[in-house]
Every structure is written in structure tokens, then in C-alpha cells.
Design a protein around this nucleic acid. Structure first.
Lengths: 349, 349
DNA sequence: AAAAAGTGCGCAACCGATTGCGCACTTTTT
DNA sequence: AAAAAGTGCGCAATCGGTTGCGCACTTTTT
């Protein structure tokens, strides 16, 4: 059963015509008469013919598929972006080959080699926290594979990108804290070789400077997990030195801090305010909810996929690299709202 | 740049040997001398040779890739299972082609056709809520492609499966409500052609019957979203007829009910208890947290991938279909805990 | 009515790696 | 020393569509 597969040659033999005609008919070539075409299609169904994409892709030298490289699939933001990409690439007839790097630069490089060998038509990626140099990405580009980066990008590469306006976002959220009357505001910064975290720190700096407040930066390097947040909070608690307000570059980091402080009896936001980044679903449902920034992952995914497909299908070569900046949305929640500033549940700023 | 790609023939020509030898050397064939092999590998790197998987896959008739079909990528449970699968398939050298059906049976069928044409070595899938007949799945099987189902399965198919013990799970959670003293317990059931929802309803029935309580079943058909939950709760509120306890087949459905009831001033769990299913992250962080069932998505994904890879790589043919049942874990949280039954934060049952 | 354009299809090369078979030579076995 | 086994490599077919070119015929243009 299904051992010897039906090919276009079988269809051709049965109808006493040539394989070229069958191929052309199945692909809707205009130089094949409607009669012949219908007959071929009917016969194809009768014989239970399944086109062999491997053969077709091989002959054409491209696989009609797009490689996706992301740090983690099971992060709300990333799975959302994938969902957005899929909604664009699927109708356009592309398959998705998805690789997760687990935040490892080495696995990222391996994934790219694999995608090159698989002759994907293009790659959409968000680099791992570890990734510093971009040789592996340039390798793909020099093979003629267009690469689109999103969210975590490599500024030195002159390619299409979709990013959040991280600096403005961070400025806004810091400013919100300042407007709420907080002065002693810490920022927990991610690895600074990564533009995302670099920009977020800068937004914080700008807002603090404008308000003439002292910068207080905790460098988290690559440690932005819930666990790392809990560790940091424990250290603060032990030292008896809790900031008045805490802004971070990651919802998960904030979550760890939040839970640990709450467990230790600190009241949020009365004793300490806290903000996140990314609007992971849990930030909404905590009580109080965590003030954070919605990054519009679905939209980012769609935009990245559109940029790539445009490049793949455009007849004229697109000469310049494009950069789409998506404005994150400040979501103010209870974790930063001092009660005296709340009147009838309306925010007074 | 990267226009004319390097092939094994280029390597062969440069070294004055045959392409067969190059191919065998690169694949570690034992009949090629170490000298020749090292020379070939060195030359391959020098020439920046990238193997053409399309050619290799085509020749071998298989793509070294595995198709994944799931309803939605951006569901915590599913993205977790994918993550689990990837952790097994990647080291084993398989690529993942991921398709999302958006809960549409039609898209599911299309995805399978696509995967057949892509000559994937195997398929791991969870059916859409809509899916009733299984012709499309049988089509893949009759093409010789092994299919492993997980979570939402088709009982009539005699293939490998990984499921939760949904009946026991639902029995446990219903029993927990009964032990808490609730009597007027509603179950919001999903579409009954789907084993997952069928089993959950049955677990509820069994627990209720054992306790000699009246069954109260709300048939949600395929409407299990947060939105549907809100609608249902609004209806109940309007009718002034709120159950004492609500169990459902979906965390999202429960969330909609939960938020709407809370908004209307009902106290959880004092006025009404509520349970979920799946342990979506938000259930933990609501206050009170929602009592729910952890399905161990990562483990399920790993198990499914292992079953498939075993079938793909096993030299002897595996004659029987295997079924792995994973025991969900009851997570008791505040949404079902009547305060008088809580002593020192210990549950008294 | 001759030339030009259009229609319908077949021929055969081709994409790049894989692999069964075979040949020549070397080493081991009996 | 002859037979058997092992080693190292090449030849050439093969996988299944795709596509440039060309031929024969029909329709349109001038």
C-alpha cells in the first residue's frame, strides 16, 4: 500500500501523452487545452496522484518554504509572532520550518546551516540573547537567502527588520512611574549587546534624566527569568534595601520579583511599584495587575512575513532594506497605581 | 555571490576523484580511506560547500522532516508540546514542519495533503474541534506515513497515541468540588464527538453519580473561548441563576465566566466555585487562583515524538499501536476552597 | 493569399546526491 | 601458494518533475 508512488509519468502513460504535458496541465500552464487539462486532472485524482514536492523543489532549486528561528516557541510573545507569520505565509503557499535555539548562539548557527541546506526561500529570525557576532546570518545572506529580523535584531546587518520602539516604550513606562510620584526607580537591564535591552535602558535613562532623578541600574546580563527575579528580590530583602519602584526588561523577571516581594509581605504598589515588558497573559490576571507594554506580537509576525514575501515575489529587486517600527502600547495596571491617584478607577496623571 | 552553488561534483573535479567518493566520504562511509575522507572534508569547507538537502531527500524519497499539525500555535499547552517534540526530534536530526489549523477541519485536511506532498517521514497531530471523520488522516497512513496523535485523538484509528487520562482527571476535580461541600455542580462540556471532551464529561458524570448528585450539563458545542464563557456568565446573571460550582473543559472558558462573575460582584469561591482544565499560566496568578489540571504538555510532546521516531528508526516493524496515557495533576487553588475548610493553609478533605 | 502570431503538445536535458555493481589491488586464511 | 576476504574507489543509472526549444497545425493580420 502506497509503496510504489504514482508519478506524472504514470498519468502520462495511461493517457498516452507526455509527462511534460501532464506537468504543465497540473500547473495551469496556458498552452495546454482545457480538454486535456481536465482529463489529466481527473486521471490524477483517479490514480490518487500526490505531487512530489521534493522532486519539484529540487528541480526548481527552491523549497517553497520559509525558515523561522526563535529563542523559544513556548513564550507567549514568540508563539504569537509565529501565529501571525503563519497567517500570511500559508495563504501565500509557503511552508514553515521552525527552529528554536533555546537562547543558544550555537544552536542558532546550526539552525541556519540546516536551513541553508534545506534551501529555504527565506528566513525570519529573532536572535538569541547570547548572539553577538553575525557571521552565521551573513552566511545565509551570501547564499542568496533573504533574512528578515524581528524584535531582537542585529543593527550591523543591512536587512529588513521589524522592531518595537523599545526606547520610547521604556521612556513611557518610566515616565509613568515618575508621574505617579515615584523617585527611587530602579531599572533591571538585559544584556547590552542586544539592541532590545540597550534601547530599553536608554529610554529609562532619558526619562530619569529629564526628571533629574538618579539612575539606578541593575545589570542582569542574560538572566531574565522568573527564577532570576526571585533571586534578585531575595537579595534585596536580605539587604533590607527595596527600591521604591522597579522597572525591568522582562515580564518573567518582574514576575519573579513580584511574587517574592509579595511573599515577604511587601504591598504592591504601596510599598513598591513594579513594571514589566511584553504583556505576557499573566500580567493581566495578577492582583494587582502588572503595568507593562503590549508588543503586538501577532502584528510583528505578520509584518515580518509580509516583508519577506514581498522580497521573494517582487519581480523587480528591492534595493533598500526596510525597517518597520511598531509602537508598543502602555498598559497601566494596579502594580504602579498609588491609590491616592485613583479616583473612580480613573487614572489621574 | 552564491549564485552558482558548489556541489559534490565541484569537489570531485577539484580533487580529480569521483562524485560517489565525495558523497560517501561526507556521509562517513567506511569503505573510504581516512586520507581521502579528510581531504574531501577539508576541500568541502574550503569551497564553502553546503549539502543540498533537496537533492538528497529527493533521491532517498524521504525528507528527514516531521510534520506537526495543531489547532493553534499560540496556546500555552500546544506551544509547550511543540517545545517538547523539538527537544526530541532535533537531536535525532529531523526538521519540524509546523501547520496550524485554526480549529478548522478543512485546513487540517489541506495541511495533511501538503505534508504528504512534502514527503514528511511522519506526522504528529492533534485534531481540530471540528474534525469528525478521519479520511484525510487515513490518506496519510495509506501513503505509508506513520501518524501519532496526541491529546485530541481519533479513537477509530489504530495508531500510536499520547493522551491524558481525561476521565480520571475530570472525576478527580469534580470529586474535589464534592468534597468541598458543593452540591449544585454544573459541567460545561465541549463537543462530544471529541474524545477529550467526551471523557471529561464522563468523569464528571461518574463522580456526580457516585455522590448521588444531579447532573447539570451545559453543552457548549465548539464554543470554549473566553468570550463564550463571558456570554454564558452574562446569561446566568441575567437569569439570576448562578450554579454553586462550575467545572468546565477549558481554562479559557472558565476565565470568561470567572471574570464576568467577579465583575458582577460574585465572590469566588464563597458565592460560586469554578474549575478549569489545562493549567494555562493565568490560572495560577488570578486571585483566587483557579483550581485546574496540569496536562504536562512538554512531556506529552516528548512522548509523542519518541513514539514516532522509534517507529521511523526501528529496524523491525512495530506491529502494534501504542497508547501512552499521562496522568494529569490536580492543582487545587483558591477558586474552589471554602475558607472554613482551610486550616493553616492545609486542605482538609 | 502570404506572413505573422497563436495554439497544443513532445523531446530530452537537467537539477545534485545516492547506491548497486564491479574492478583492481592488498591482506588474511587455510 | 592458492583461495577467500577485505579495502578503496569509479561507473552509470536513478529519483520525479520542469522547461527551453521545436514542430505541426490553426487562426489572425496585412
Amino acid at each position: 500500500m502506497g509503496n510504489r508512488k504514482i508519478t506524472i509519468h504514470d498519468i502520462a502513460a495511461k493517457l498516452g501523452i507526455s509527462a511534460s504535458t501532464v506537468s504543465r496541465a497540473l500547473n495551469g500552464h496556458s498552452r495546454i487545452s482545457k480538454n486535456t487539462r481536465d482529463l489529466i486532472k481527473k486521471t490524477a485524482i483517479e490514480l490518487n496522484y500526490k505531487p512530489n514536492n521534493l522532486a519539484s523543489s529540487f528541480r526548481k532549486g527552491k523549497s517553497n518554504s520559509i525558515g523561522i528561528i526563535i529563542p523559544r516557541i513556548n513564550r507567549h510573545f514568540f508563539s504569537n509572532t509565529i501565529s501571525g507569520m503563519e497567517s500570511i505565509t500559508n495563504p501565500a503557499g509557503y511552508n514553515l520550518m521552525i527552529c528554536q535555539t533555546n537562547e543558544s548562539a550555537e544552536e542558532e548557527a546550526k539552525s541556519i546551516l540546516n536551513l541553508i541546506s534545506s534551501r529555504v526561500d527565506g528566513i525570519i529570525m529573532s536572535v538569541s540573547v547570547e548572539t553577538k557576532d553575525t557571521k552565521h546570518i551573513e552566511a545565509a545572506i551570501s547564499e542568496g537567502i533573504p533574512v528578515v529580523q524581528f524584535d531582537r535584531i542585529s543593527p550591523q546587518l543591512d536587512i529588513d527588520k521589524v522592531i518595537n520602539d523599545n526606547k520610547t516604550a521604556s521612556y513611557l513606562i518610566t515616565n509613568h512611574l515618575i508621574n505617579q510620584g515615584y523617585k527611587n526607580i530602579v531599572h533591571c537591564a538585559g544584556p547590552q549587546h542586544n539592541t532590545v535591552y540597550f534601547d530599553r535602558l536608554n529610554g529609562y535613562k532619558q526619562a530619569m534624566k529629564k526628571a533629574k532623578l538618579n539612575l539606578q541600574i541593575v545589570n542582569m546580563a542574560e538572566n531574565l527569568t522568573r527564577h532570576d527575579g526571585a533571586d534578585l528580590a531575595k537579595k534585596w530583602i536580605q539587604e533590607g534595601n527595596i527600591p521604591e519602584a522597579i522597572s525591568t526588561s522582562s515580564d518573567y523577571l518582574s514576575l519573579g520579583i513580584y511574587i517574592e516581594l509579595k511573599k515577604a509581605g511587601y504591598k504592591i504598589p504601596e510599598d513598591v511599584a513594579i513594571t514589566g515588558f511584553s504583556n505576557e497573559p499573566f500580567t493581566e490576571y495578577l492582583e494587582p495587575g502588572i503595568t507593562t507594554l503590549e508588543q503586538h506580537g501577532l502584528e510583528m509576525g505578520k509584518s515580518a512575513a509580509k516583508l519577506l514575501i514581498e522580497r521573494l515575489t517582487s519581480t523587480r529587486k528591492i534595493p533598500v532594506s526596510r525597517m518597520i517600527t511598531i509602537q508598543p502600547e502602555l498598559l497601566v495596571r494596579g502594580s504602579t497605581l498609588r491609590s491616592e491617584l485613583l479616583i473612580n478607577n480613573k487614572i489621574i496623571t
